[in-house]
């Protein structure tokens, strides 16, 4: 049995989950258990159906054709069955991505589709849609000395009125091209799946404690009419902007979690600055982007050390 810790939750898993930080098995019960088991191809009871999933009560069934079926129950257990002799190493990335995302929704957590790094004791988040450069930004900043907080999925929990980012303690996931362009080849480990040229990359350092939020940037590409730079959307649109970057946003409605998300989006946007960071996707521009971020952090009083 493998033991992990992610976003404040202890996980025990029958298979290795290389995306997460391993921890010693303390013998106590885990909050989440992941095991191989028979998983039917449909749920029995009354259900809501999507293109790859079914939901009924506290059960959620996800099927990735020719890869695996996953049954997520009650925010605490995950059973999976591979299809077509898919090796388990090819399944792990779905467990730490979509499946944990579903489970976090079941548990009532708020998770942003974001990566984050630690800047002077605070978490700076980078939200964005697929391919917006969340992992790339986190990778470039961790290389610059800012510890990685999380890659791709960032759980935000409010403690004593302060929204905190919970670290996944894990690794970056980067495309071959990004690894080469950012000169991270020596930190590269296994591919996330056998036939995918995306790899786990060990960050130089990682945060392991919950951090108050310092700033949130929504990543955009410089496409007309958008120009390069950092700008702040009007305060009234900030909560809506955050809601667009919830992890697995479809589940907000399917699981009737609109009110909780709206409340959280308002709390977060009251507590922390939310900005657009518009950049072109060519790696050659990254040093300039980092400089403008550090300048921005100094202006906000966020980072004494951001020089």
């Amino acid at each position: 049995m493998h033991s992990y810790y992610m976003a404040g939750l202890s996980i025990s898993s029958e298979i290795a989950l290389p995306g997460l930080l391993a921890q010693g098995d303390d013998g106590g019960p885990s909050e989440i258990s992941i095991r191989r088991d028979k998983v039917d191809s449909a749920l029995n009871s009354k259900r809501i159906v999507g293109p790859t999933w079914q939901m009924s009560g506290d059960q959620f069934l996800l099927r990735i054709p020719n890869v695996a079926r996953f049954l997520v129950t009650g925010g605490s257990t995950v059973a999976f069955e591979t299809e077509n002799d898919t090796p388990v190493e090819d399944v792990a990335i779905f467990l730490v991505g979509t499946v944990l995302g579903i489970l976090l929704h079941q548990r009532g957590h708020i998770a942003l589709h974001a990566s984050a790094v630690q800047v002077d004791g605070k978490a700076v988040l980078f939200c964005g849609r697929s391919r917006a450069g969340k992992s790339t930004m986190a990778a470039a900043l961790s290389q610059r000395g800012y510890p990685l907080v999380t890659d791709n999925l960032c759980v935000v929990a409010t403690a004593a009125g302060t929204p905190m980012a919970l670290p996944d303690g894990g690794r970056l996931r980067l495309w071959a091209q990004a690894i080469e362009s950012l000169d991270l080849g020596t930190r590269r480990s296994a591919p996330v799946r056998t036939h995918i040229e995306k790899y786990y990359v060990e960050p130089p350092s990682a945060a392991c404690e919950a951090l108050p939020l310092g700033a949130i940037y929504v990543l955009r590409e410089t496409r007309p009419p958008l120009r390069e730079g950092i700008d702040q959307p009007h305060a009234t649109s900030a909560p809506l902007l955050l809601l667009r970057h919830i992890h697995l946003p479809l589940l907000i409605r399917k699981m009737n979690r609109e009110a909780a998300h709206f409340k959280a989006a308002i709390e977060i946007s009251n507590a922390v600055g939310i900005f657009h960071l518009t950049r072109n996707f060519e790696f050659v521009g990254m040093p300039a982007v980092i400089s403008s971020l550090e300048r921005h952090w100094r202006e906000m009083g966020l980072a004494e050390r951001a020089t």
Binding site: G50, P51, L62, R129, N152, I196, L248, L250, L251
Partner: peptide, 13 residues
Amino acid sequence: FEYLSLIDSGVLT
């Protein structure tokens, strides 16, 4: 695709 399938298309072939 990603919104409806819940799957990160970046880990699919």
